[in-house]
Computed example of a mutant assay.
Amino acid sequence: MNTTPYRAGHVAVIGRPNVGKSTLTNALVGAKVSIVSPRPQTTRHRLLGIATFPEGQLLLVDTPGLHRDQGTSTSSAMHRWMNRAARGALEGVDVALLVVRAGQWTEADSFAYEALRGAGLPVVLVVNQIDRIKNKTELFPYLGKVSEGRDFAGVHPISALKRNGLEGLVKTVLSHLPEQDALYAEDEITDKSQRFLAGELVREQLMRQLGEELPYATTVEIESFSVDGTMLRIGAVIWVERDGQKAIVIGKGGERLREIGTKSRIQMERLFDAKVFLQTWVRVREGWSDDEAALRAFGYHD
């Protein structure tokens, strides 16, 4: 008979942009609930990933990369929104995972650590991408250096991509969660709707295929989402800020837009376990990323 108490609670997944927070969330949940691309700040929304284990349940709050807001006039409304979303993730959580890239510790990592300590949270250091370090003996002096003078509730070298080191991490995190029953059903993996996830999967393809040309000038609005028998019919509008950007997204003869649509549809069918009929359009709204009203209309609201 198992006498270990069941634990459940909220876990903030925090770190500077592009250290693998979303990859870690997906790995723990066991399904793709958070989009991933090589571009920094791919994640724009707070998203709850629900990871259920025999011993407990982690409610993982995946966030945009936490970075210092310079407070200048050039700081866009989108930039300010992502910082608010990242900081808001610290409210009401039980423990925080500070995700860093193995072999690196930057000023931005220090900034994220201080923000977590300032919130009074236990901080578990997650050293990600250890698979990229060929000589593993280099890890020991690095771990010693980053731990010196910092109060971590645990230090875990992992590879989220290869799912290495996750078991020990889960055990440490669970020890900091309150004893209580699961807060979500075992088969639930996120608090977001299929409609929201569909928009994110289209945006993921935009970031992957156009990251060099249009890193942050695009967003996606799901205009229609309906169930037709065993098929999902989805209409997605890709918003850009200028006509020239529209031409880039569409591509020669519409080739790029078709590729974005095809790859998005495949990801949707995999996640939703259903056939998907996806239509995509590209429209222009000048300056949407620095327009608070436009951001709210596109789903960026607190």
Rank of each mutant, 00 (worst) to 15 (best):
R258E: 05
I250P: 02
E213G: 11
G254L: 05
P178L: 09
G199R: 01
L214P: 02
E204N: 00
Q205P: 01
I189T: 14
L232K: 14
Q180I: 10
E223F: 10
G229P: 10
D243H: 14
Y184T: 04
G211T: 03
D191C: 11
I248P: 10
P157I: 00
S226T: 13
L206W: 01
V240H: 12
Q245G: 10
A185S: 15
D187W: 11
G199W: 00
D191T: 15
R195E: 04
T218Q: 06
L232P: 07
R242I: 03
Q205N: 02
A247I: 09
Y184L: 05
A236G: 09
Q180M: 12
Y184C: 04
G261E: 01
R265C: 02
N164I: 12
I260H: 02
L210W: 01
A198V: 00
K192A: 10
I189V: 14
E213L: 12
M231S: 13
E204D: 00
R242G: 06
M231F: 10
E167C: 04
V240K: 10
E204P: 00
A236W: 02
R195F: 01
R242C: 04
V220I: 06
A182V: 11
N164D: 12
V227L: 15
S175G: 09
V240F: 11
G251K: 12
I238M: 04
G211F: 03
I248W: 10
I260T: 03
V240S: 06
Q267F: 04
F225W: 12
E212A: 14
L214V: 04
M231K: 15
H176C: 05
K192E: 07
E223I: 12
D191K: 14
A217N: 11
L206K: 02
Q205C: 00
L257A: 10
V173N: 03
Q205S: 02
L161K: 14
R233A: 09
E212W: 12
S226P: 08
V220G: 01
V237W: 11
I234T: 06
V237S: 13
R256E: 07
E204V: 00
T218D: 01
Q180Y: 09
D191S: 15
E213H: 13
S224V: 08
R163K: 15
E200S: 02
D187H: 14
A247H: 13
D181L: 15
G168L: 03
Q209G: 09
K252V: 04
L201N: 01
A160C: 06
I266M: 07
G251P: 11
I248R: 12
A217F: 07
V249M: 12
M231I: 11
V220L: 01
Q267P: 09
G154T: 01
S224Y: 14
G244C: 09
E213W: 08
L166F: 06
L232S: 07
V220E: 00
G165T: 04
M231G: 07
I234E: 06
E200L: 01
R265K: 12
E186P: 12
K192R: 15
G199N: 03
T219E: 05
G251R: 12
T172G: 05
G229A: 12
A153Q: 02
E188M: 14
Q267R: 15
A236T: 03
L197A: 02
D243K: 15
A247K: 14
